[in-house]
Design a protein around this nucleic acid. Sequence first.
RNA 1: UGCCCGAUGGUGUAAUGGUAGCACAGCAGACUCUGACUCUGUUUGUCUAGGUUCAAAUCCUAGUCGGGCAGCCA
Length: 554
Amino acid sequence: MAMAETSKNFIYEIIDEELAAGKHPSIVTRFPPEPNGYLHIGHAKSICLNHGIARDYQGRFHLRFDDTNPTKEDTEYVDSIKEDVAWLGADWGKNLFFASDYFEQLYQWALHLIDAGKAFVCELSAEEVREYRGTLKTPGRESPYRHRPVEENRRLFEAMRAGEFADGAKVLRAKIDMAHPNMNMRDPVLYRIQHAHHHRTGNAWCIYPMYDFAHGQSDAIEGITHSICTLEFEEHRPLYNWFIENLPVPHHPRQIEFARLNLTHTVMSKRKLLQLVKEGHVTGWDDPRMPTISGLRRRGYTPAAIREFCSRVGVAKRNNTIDLALLEFCLRQDLEALAPRRMAVLDPLKVTITNFPEGTVERFPGPNNPGDPAMGEREVPLTREIYIEREDFLEDPPKKFFRLAPGVEVRLRYACYITCTEVMKDAAGNITELRAAFDPESRGGGTPDNRRVKGTIHWVSATENVPLEVRLYENLFTVPDPDDVEEGRTFLDYINPASLTVVQAVGEPALRDAAPGERLQFERKGYFALDPDSRPERLVFNRSVDLRSSYKPE
RNA sequence: UGCCCGAUGGUGUAAUGGUAGCACAGCAGACUCUGACUCUGUUUGUCUAGGUUCAAAUCCUAGUCGGGCAGCCA
């Protein structure tokens, strides 16, 4: 897919200026997930941004796991994150790293701060630390342990590492300024004691560095030039820089913040996504209704569509909420070109073509993509009995209903013209079946007299078909912003009860050959992808997105 | 009533002191063997008030509104 014409965002401008000033021999970026959850479309924005910069400047892109909290992290997440990043097309090559790779170096740097009199071991409890920190409007107070001699701090910190203390008994803190207006600078915690098994370092450590102490230094070790993160880290930047300036790091990275992605009609926070899964509101992290990468993948989204979306949403510092319609637009645009067309009837209504010979089959060629002859064609079988979409027939149609109605002629796509001759109903008055007559001269979809037929509808043979389970998805939430809740309600109260509808449908025989994950267009109905739940005897399709429609029922 | 950041149509995003543009969405039309695609047209915008300037979305000041910050989470 062609990249949309986009002007440079503010980060590119910063890089351009720095490059012009000769500040960097090359550009290095990174995507730094914590392996404690699944990636979502918001992460995709960050991945595309970071990977895109490295690509555009012929630099390097690193994937680095920020695994400094063993109690929350797991290799299961490492694996899923790697899969998702790779699927999106962000190739990290050999540059796969873990913050835990740097634990020893980080520890040495902590010692360096201690020796310089810039860090101390504090024995205040967590509650006391909070109390001493002050509030947003009032300065904090210094810890009574703040003025310990360097030697004592060193001995204590080494004892912390040696496992001589219980969890929470002591922490290592930076000595900065308890009256600083920026809370992050009020003697932040650098290390805490956690006798916990780490998914990579096992039991080698019982003290673990905090994010602030690990992140910037990890950037420095890897030679990251631009450490791009989201807005909430903006106030951490002074601390980020303080470490870089007070430690003998090999390199000075620069932190730049941008606004994270928000999407209408969904939620993006890990906590809420986890709650949806845990409480069974969705079937899992990869439920096609989820904004997770795995959910979008299962839904039928393509990496190209997501990349295009990320390039279109732009990068800036103001909070934003992107219309879900843009994501859908990007998918349609991609699939329009590459998805083979098929016919499937989601809500079947039987039609008997009374003048069509019984027991015979006529096969008509249908292009796999009318816009791209190179994609070839398949044959669709026409028989005396067929199914059409129930909504494509109206007994008493309004003026601009270009579909089937009594006495009205329509084209069966790729096949022939039929005219409805009779409507059959049950005792309750429900339409049970239609009878129609076809024009033998219209075979192939046109007639010698070139008469115009306004409507073309899709159809499937009632005898030559494959049964399908089709899962129709709609927005997971009924409101654009489920995070904006009324008094006394939660985001769960806005879950769309119609977010999933399962229908038993019928499809043309060619559907039998659908490959796992294959994306198809069911003509006039939308784009669909074969679900992993699919079995040869029971094909399951997910509706990825419907087709735009300018048809407005009266 | 602390500190930091932000404010351009419905939603995003450009314009870097000199014509407010683009995309999505919406609306109207053309085309059409998908009411799709494509094409055409079109509604809607610089938070407010002062100031600097020949000229301000852009620079300055004040205000208003929105977001973030008091984990031994990231």
